[in-house]
Simulated assay, not measured.
Amino acid sequence: MNSALFDLFSRALAAAKLTGRLDQITPLVPEASTRRYYRLHLSDKTTRVAVNEDTATASTNMPNVIAVQRFLHERGVAVPEIYFADPAAGIMLQQDLGDLSLNQALKENSDKADLLYQEAILHMLSWQRLADDGHCPAFRLSFDIEKLMFEFEFFLTHTLLGYYHAKVTDTELSEIRAAFTKIAEQLAAYPNKVFTHRDYHSRNIIVYDGSAPHHKQYIIDFQDARMGLMQYDLCSLLCDAYAPLSVERRATLIDFAFEQGKDIHRQTRAEFDHYWQLSAFQRTVKAMGTFGRQAALGRDDFAGYLKPAWQMLKEITAQSSELRSCSERLENLAANASQNVLS
């Protein structure tokens, strides 16, 4: 057991005035971030989750987490309780929701997939209806052109060039960036933006408090929340390489979201579908940037998510010749450098 971590977490538990002393620390499976999560087993048989983050980033990130958590919790959105936070030390203690993510629940209850996804969509719509209180930092951030292009560039740097080592000419890169910029400009210009989680996929949803229909879905990892299109979180959920959906099931769930969220998106079906395609393309490329980055760092599990992501790009762009042309170009460049793109 790491004695430095044991001492750090013990002091945090004492500062939080939680009952029970620290008996054991269990590392939790790391995701694609610099934060590390641990389950703390206490002498009174309860558990807590500790978050440990580099102090250089924690000084900015943790206050955002606390502010967003408070905003959502006060408005009835299911988020874990925070017991203690010390950004200067890079430490936070929060409620332990267990290990049953939506991703795992879907594997264990495949016959209830539609109900689980519908619940997740309704939960999403609940925070997309929230208004600015003047304090939550998410309302001061947005999916602007700079942010969207940063995510596109992340894919080019870490996946297309970094992971696949694709041979791309300067002219080709300029043309790809021009296509990306056109997409980013359309998404950034749309005026009706709502509160978005920004990373609303099946691993960031925890199914807690029993099994269906008595469970409750909680959201985690919401520190990067910002304003964006209603479709963005929906794309994160339904274009999720961790839990790929059939084209038919995805279409049915998109229909459900369109009908349930009419008061939020206020779009015709043609407008909704247009911005869905743009958002789904951008979100999937963004996710592929993360997968390539982690794979290049030796996380082979993330390399495995690139194949379903490429397949989703095919499905997403099937109805748009412009997006399909861009997707095929990216895939061909990757395939020319690696024979293991979709096979």
Rank of each mutant, 00 (worst) to 15 (best):
D114G: 12
A257K: 05
T159V: 01
Y200M: 00
D133G: 01
M312P: 08
S338M: 11
I176R: 02
D7C: 12
L130D: 02
A85D: 12
V207N: 03
A166T: 01
Q104E: 15
A188H: 00
T47R: 03
A105W: 07
E271R: 08
P213L: 05
N204H: 02
S101E: 01
D273A: 12
L253H: 08
Y38Q: 00
L22A: 01
D240E: 07
E108C: 10
L342T: 13
R35W: 00
V207S: 01
L306P: 10
V247G: 14
K107E: 14
E175D: 11
N109F: 08
G228I: 03
V49N: 01
D209E: 14
L237N: 02
M1P: 09
R283S: 05
R11E: 04
A32Q: 03
T57V: 15
L234N: 08
Y232S: 07
C239M: 10
G261N: 11
S33H: 04
Q217A: 11
A14S: 12
A337Y: 02
E315K: 12
C136K: 05
D54R: 13
F143M: 08
D114S: 15
R269A: 15
G98W: 07
E146M: 07
A287R: 03
Y200F: 03
I219G: 06
G261C: 03
A89R: 13
H265D: 04
P137R: 02
L160M: 04
